[in-house]
């Protein structure tokens, strides 16, 4: 899987470039003789397609030259591309933002910190009391300093 990395990422870029260019075609053009707003996007799209094409070719070439050494390197790192902790972390991030307007900054942050710090702490070291205290105190302090102290507006939820 590793050895295909270059090709895959190049492929993803190519796809992105194609989509970007495609959408770019829908940008209205104004015929005043000068450059319209569709010009740069199309240009970027084309260049990226070229570059990703080059990356894919480079990847294929590297693959061919590495064919011989394949068997040995493959078994070394058995780590998968996407790790479960990462997925959970992203989910926490998304939930946090999603809940900001519902629960308000203070509550959402407390919940988020509870979850995130627990996720990041190794199983053996999880001290629940410490985590709860840190989450609550930090959130409250930040809220007080920025919302009350500096007058920065922070999301207010339906509940508060």
């Amino acid at each position: 899987m590793r050895k295909y990395k270059e090709i895959i990422s190049g492929g993803v870029m190519l796809l992105f470039a194609a989509v970007y260019f495609g959408i770019g075609m829908t940008i209205p053009e104004f015929n005043d003789g000068f450059i319209s707003s569709d010009f740069m996007p199309k240009l970027y799209g084309i260049i990226l397609m070229l570059l990703s094409g080059i990356q894919i070719i480079m990847g294929v070439r590297a693959l061919k030259t590495n064919q011989a050494e394949d068997g040995k390197t493959e078994t070394q790192e058995n780590t998968s591309f996407i790790v479960p902790e990462v997925v959970v972390a992203f989910i926490f991030l998304i939930l946090y933002v999603a809940l900001l307007n519902v629960l308000g900054f203070l509550l959402s942050t407390i919940l988020f910190l509870l979850g995130m710090v627990t996720l990041f702490t190794q199983k053996g070291e999880r001290n629940v009391v410490k985590i709860v205290l840190i989450s609550v105190i930090f959130s409250v302090v930040v809220y007080l300093i920025f919302a009350k102290g500096f007058g920065l507006t922070l999301p207010e939820g339906l509940i508060g």
Binding site: L93, Y96, V97, L100, F105, T109, F112, L113, M116, V117, F120, T121, Q122, I134, F138, S139, V142, F146, L152, T153, L154, P155
Partner: peptide, 19 residues
């Protein structure tokens, strides 16, 4: 420790992003 620091930093980033 990084595992505590990082979530805290993110919470601050949210303050900044919203701001």
């Amino acid at each position: 420790p990084t595992h505590i620091l990082m979530p805290l930093v993110f919470a601050l980033c949210i303050v900044g992003a919203f701001g």
